[in-house]
Design a protein around this nucleic acid. Structure first.
Length: 109
DNA sequence: ATAATGACAAGAA
DNA sequence: CTTCTTGCCATTA
């Protein structure tokens, strides 16, 4: 059994939930916003939260800063993004951050 | 306490 | 464009 999300994880999941359909955000982008509120965390920590509790939210809208998909779930992620008409480029497919990138905002602001 | 690891990032080559 | 090297922060051994 996995432990329930702590306060930090809750905040991360909350931010991920605000990403609009058809747009994506980087791990670092989320980390930056969460850092403004909690004062801790980093891209790696956000990645760790996603690995454990990602299934609770729209995890497929979270990619690396360069638009690369999460290798562990790349196949499913690609399918879900394609279903939302997220612009992809290259091979292996990466998200076109130029147009699909979304800047998250702290919940409540 | 140190070392290794992880759904990462940024800069150098 | 790609690959490698550092830096990052929390968890686990």
């Amino acid at each position: 059994m996995q432990p329930p999300p702590d306060d930090y994880a809750e905040l991360v999941l909350d931010v991920v939930a605000t990403i609009p359909e058809g747009r994506v955000t980087s791990y670092g982008g989320i980390a930056a916003v969460v850092r403004e509120v909690t004062g801790r965390g980093s891209a790696r920590v956000v990645g760790r939260v996603m690995a454990h509790y990602g299934s609770e939210v729209c995890w497929w809208r979270v990619v690396t800063a360069s638009g690369a998909l999460a290798e562990r779930v790349a196949t499913e992620q690609r399918a879900r993004l394609r279903a939302e008409d997220v612009p992809m480029v290259g091979d292996p497919p990466r998200v076109d951050m130029r147009t699909a990138a979304w800047t998250p905002r702290p919940p409540g602001l």
